[in-house]
Design a binder for these strands. Structure first.
Lengths: 154, 154
DNA sequence: ATCCTTGCAAAGCATTTGCAGTCAC
DNA sequence: GTGACTGCAAATGCTTTGCAAGGAT
């Protein structure tokens, strides 16, 4: 089975059309980058990368394009407590690790047994529990070597 | 066994002294409020409440006082992905539920079996995993009744 | 031809910071 | 008396928004 060039673009065209939105060069470039990386980039990372293809693109357009992709179900937004966000081209649920020093995010393979978590949902008095947020935290390889990691909120 | 008035203030005085900081009316009022509520207030909630005791207090001072309490180990800062923070006078680790609509936070009694989570720490390649973040999400009683919950980031 | 998108700059929002005056010790 | 703390206002940093010009269908 051969991987076809253009598959990502076709998927994007279909998803945009399905939601009554237009295919643009900017959205295509953003999706192309996102679908081919596992670094879980910030909007700015995407901006810097996409600017190599489209020098005139603006940061605001990158933000808007990313939100469009999320709206179409082609990307997932990972939001963090320092107010920053990262984007993931993988849309299936999976666990992430986040570096508490630099904010880098990586995938963690494997399944979590969530029964223990779900069992607590009934204890949340007054709340209708619909889900949970779980992520591992730690230090990435680069930050582990550093003497003075810069402080960020996990 | 009788609850003594002044216990909170004594604990605050001790904690501040231990870290070379000064006891002030503002810090006392912030701690008094935080130690007697389970609403997990935002800095602004604290500000509005404390202003009843100290009308001239500023929001900046409330922020600084809260950080001081966190630094002393008398409070815990709960940070969320919409960039907001809430403060908890309970410093022992326990699970929270957060309303995805209004951001309200409540305690959830009970223990989670974390073995399944901890077992995945080894799979995070390149990372030294030091902990995890877990919280339940859902709708609080008030928001469940509303027709159009306002959108916030979970 | 329509009306969705872009790019720019300005606005938002929770929080932080600089600084002069004030206060706890 | 001295250095930490307060209150004010201005600044910060990520993200969003308003709007006129441009582009996809």
């Amino acid at each position: 089975m051969t991987m076809r060039i253009g598959t990502n673009e076709q998927r994007l065209r279909r998803a945009l059309e399905a939601s009554g939105q237009r295919f643009t060069e900017q959205r295509a470039a953003v999706y192309r980058f996102l679908a081919n990386t596992d670094i879980h980039p910030t909007a700015e990372d995407v901006f810097l990368a996409v600017r190599r293809d489209i020098p005139g693109i603006s940061l605001a357009t990158v933000y808007k394009s990313l939100e469009t992709l999320v709206g179409c179900g082609l990307a997932v937004k990972l939001t963090y407590s320092d107010g920053s966000a990262r984007y993931d081209g993988r849309t299936d649920p999976h666990l992430h690790v986040r570096c508490v020093s630099c904010g880098a995010v990586a995938d963690v393979p494997g399944e979590v047994d969530t029964r223990s978590i779900e069992a607590l949902a009934d204890r949340a008095e007054g709340f209708e529990v619909t889900g949970y947020r779980l992520e591992l935290t730690g230090l990435c390889e680069a930050c582990r070597r550093e003497t003075a990691p810069r402080a960020i909120r996990a």
